[in-house]
Design a protein around this nucleic acid. Structure first.
Length: 304
DNA sequence: ACGCCTACCTGCTTGC
DNA sequence: TGCAAGCAGGTAGGCG
């Protein structure tokens, strides 16, 4: 479900609605939602009584900072959602964890496909929750070592909306890689928070073919990509995210961005710029949508 | 470094 | 209508 704009929307919603709230009770109905090595019973015991100080986002993970310095991380993966509900709200068979708040409300973790994971990390440090390949060499046995807070997401690439994510930085990173643009945009170690929807949208906006190799871009093309990624994400946040199926904000309402998507899941429909039929191909086992006319593939620009 | 595969899960859509 | 296959916003781990 959620990519950067959706997770950002949830985090902002929660900052407004549950910052300052105290968790008086927790109930876990699908144990594997709780990250190893925390046994669910221990997690429940340790979270009870905690007060939520503030809520933020890093990459596609929601961070609930607790008053005592500990941090609860919620990785929503495909269908996870964090929803604030009244205690007497309708029962929902897909709610995997319920946090009962002191004021009577519930913070519900809902997840149809059960891929999401919730972690609780000690004050002043978290264990690595790295991002795939890039963090592999840094991986250590679970529980064997603690990372300091600044190193928590050390396996992740830059936040695309941060001020430090400049054209120059993107150019430098692209220049060192031979992979296809689409695959790189999905690589959390290369850039944090972009997923399948916004990768396709950004490439369409930048008029770059998803199979172009990263180190083959001209300066102007890098500039277009940098601008496109940031615009697409910012606009989606302004629209509270793209709801294709399961995604809702913490208020339980879907976002409004899905209807503004230019290529994602618009196979065979006309390109909004030139009217050419949008094509669907598979890149790295992920559906990929693009306009064959606006996003041409120059000869010899594909990874071999 | 890179691409490709499988696994984790459930539900909806599509095609015969 | 029924039923199987294919598809889904993510990512970890394994292989060549």
């Amino acid at each position: 479900m959620p990519e950067l704009p959706e997770v950002e929307t949830v985090a902002r919603d929660l900052q407004h609605s549950v910052a300052g709230a105290t968790i008086v009770h927790a109930h876990v109905s699908w144990d594997r939602t709780i990250r190893h090595p925390q046994p669910p019973e221990r997690f429940v015991a340790e979270i009870e009584g905690a007060t939520i100080l503030r809520v933020s986002r890093r990459a596609k993970t929601v961070l609930l900072h607790l008053e005592d310095g500990r941090v609860m991380t919620v990785a929503l993966r495909m269908t996870g959602a964090l929803i604030v509900a009244a205690a007497d709200a309708d029962p929902d068979p897909y709610v995997r964890v319920v946090f009962s708040l002191a004021d009577g409300r519930q913070l519900r973790y809902r997840d149809v496909r059960k891929f999401g994971r919730i972690g609780l990390w000690p004050g002043g440090g978290l264990r690595s929750v790295g991002a795939g390949r890039g963090s592999r060499s840094r991986k250590v046995a679970e529980g064997a070592r603690r990372y300091r807070i600044g190193e928590v997401f050390s396996g992740h690439g830059p936040e695309p909306l941060s001020r430090t994510f400049t054209v120059g930085r993107l150019a430098e990173r692209l220049g060192r890689r031979s992979a296809r643009l689409k695959s790189l945009l999905l690589d959390q170690a290369f850039i944090a928070g972009v997923g399948n929807i916004y990768a396709d949208e950004a490439l369409w906006r930048a008029r770059l073919h998803p199979l172009r190799r990263a180190d083959g871009l001209a300066d102007g093309e890098v500039r277009r990509l940098h601008r496109a990624v940031r615009q697409v994400l910012r606009e989606a946040i302004a629209n509270r995210g793209s709801s294709l199926r399961d995604y809702v904000g913490a208020d339980g309402e879907p976002g409004a961005n899905a209807e503004r998507l230019a290529v994602y899941r618009r196979t065979e429909q006309p390109c909004l710029r030139c009217g050419t039929r949008i094509e669907r191909i598979v890149v790295g086992q992920r559906s990929t949508h693009f306009c064959p006319r606006c996003q041409p593939l120059p000869v010899a620009s594909v990874p071999s």
